[in-house]
Design a protein around this nucleic acid. Sequence first.
DNA 1: TTTTATGATAATTTAATGTTATGTATGCTG
DNA 2: CAGCATACATAACATTAAATTATCATAAAA
Lengths: 303, 303
Amino acid sequence: MYAETMLNSLWLKTFVKLTETGHFTQTGNQLGMTQPGVSQHLKKLEQQIGAPLITRIGKGFELTREGELLLGFALTAEKQETDLRAAIQQDDPNTGEIRIACSGSMALYLYPKLLKQQRAHPGLLLKVEVAPNHRSLRLLQSNEVDLCIVTQQTVQSSLTQHHIGNEPLCLVVPADFEEKPSTFADLEALGFIDHPDGQHYAERLLTPNFPEINAVNADLRATGYINQLSQILVPVAQGLGYTVLPETAVRSFEAQEKIRILELKEPVSDPLYLTVKKHRTLAARYDWFSKQIADLCGQMSSS
Amino acid sequence: MYAETMLNSLWLKTFVKLTETGHFTQTGNQLGMTQPGVSQHLKKLEQQIGAPLITRIGKGFELTREGELLLGFALTAEKQETDLRAAIQQDDPNTGEIRIACSGSMALYLYPKLLKQQRAHPGLLLKVEVAPNHRSLRLLQSNEVDLCIVTQQTVQSSLTQHHIGNEPLCLVVPADFEEKPSTFADLEALGFIDHPDGQHYAERLLTPNFPEINAVNADLRATGYINQLSQILVPVAQGLGYTVLPETAVRSFEAQEKIRILELKEPVSDPLYLTVKKHRTLAARYDWFSKQIADLCGQMSSS
DNA sequence: TTTTATGATAATTTAATGTTATGTATGCTG
DNA sequence: CAGCATACATAACATTAAATTATCATAAAA
């Protein structure tokens, strides 16, 4: 029993030709082999399948049900291999998957803009995986994405990073929050709306602006948590707390009149690093996307 | 250059395992072979593809673009082979294609009824090819269908036929056509609406009923032709001619009040033969359809 | 029945595949 | 930085698989 073994594609080719010609001898001739070779190929295929593929009727034959199924399989397999070879040779910049990982705010900013390219070239398929920095890097390492945008430099020597821009961070408060320069105590009184990157952003922005925070274990008093980027500002708009978010995420919030961005003495931006594996050559379609991402991120911090 | 050769599935299996483990030695162990074997498999795959599949980085490696593509190909190929094996072992009566050829009138009668089975079992796919007798038989011979219904016995010894019923033929005239027993001259005056099976049906029905027809070269005076079964009776309804059709086709016509079936002294039915190839074992799903067709055709002639 | 064509089978040759032994490069450790 | 351990590459050899030649068996055609 060969059941363990995979189907041999050479046998299959012979089988397909056999069904085309209907003759063992002709099949042999057309494939540059002898008739006994054809007989043997068929016999071995039948062993692999575990059932006869043809029923012999005098000189001719008919396919069995199994033969019919196998023929269909072989034909599609042949086609797929042709397709593969074409794909390998071409490296068409307008077909294939583009797999990217980035933060929710970057996705909010980039995804609609990048989708234009996919709309222009229906062969493309953009896949964006929203993830915090460390998971983005892990996805890159495990080849689940080919490109990621993170806000940290990594020590991993197998990766290459380009600084492509800066993402300004904003301290967001309810619109009716006091105008005068606030103290950290005022914020604590209001409460922190937490989210997946919340602690990270808060520490980055608040520490330089509010020296009174105990730098190390700055444990904020949280009055809310949600992991949907588009909804983080909902509780803020309702006066339930403040939060810290990248500017792009704040700008996309609908009820701008119910929130306010506090001006701070020390503005803070998260640096953006376009990150790829050092030793991988990405497909041609990534050229446009890499450049576009760099451009868009460059514009973001300058404007 | 191996470009002619098909991809060897054993190599592929090794390659897939290699990408899983990331180690040549481990791959060898898990596949019951030695490390040099793995190296050779990879090398030969790279020759077949004509490009490196991995870039070696120190001890480890990364997949190249080609490697990535090939990996995807190999994984889907593996899955498809599994599916094939499952399909072969099961012979599930509720999945797969049912390919049938028959006349337009039979299709009109059978198709909606047979579709019920497909609706009950979404894995099924009913394909009906409407064709005249001789083409139905050719489709069967060339395995483009697995089963056909014809009104003739065939001499081809490779086929098996079962008589499953009779299809009464009707002489159809405009509703306002004279009531009294007509002569062939009356019909000729009216004119014949021809269709793909028209001459055949007409000869079968008219010859026994109108002895005045010169049997051999009965050339009817045609005043219309259309190959859409559902529209053949349109000109008849408008008083433009008569025609001969199977009863089922007549019954399905919408404007019954505008046409009339002439009663004849010698009723004629076309016998219906369910025809299959003698030396083919059809898949289990055909059992239900064969029986259902036989039942339906049996009912048709009795009622 | 005889002939001819076509596929099956057996024995042999040829090719491929896999293994052992050995070489080489990388990365780690003292 | 030297030396060791690990992991892959390569070459020579052994084994296994596959193709061919020669021959036989059988079915259709004359």
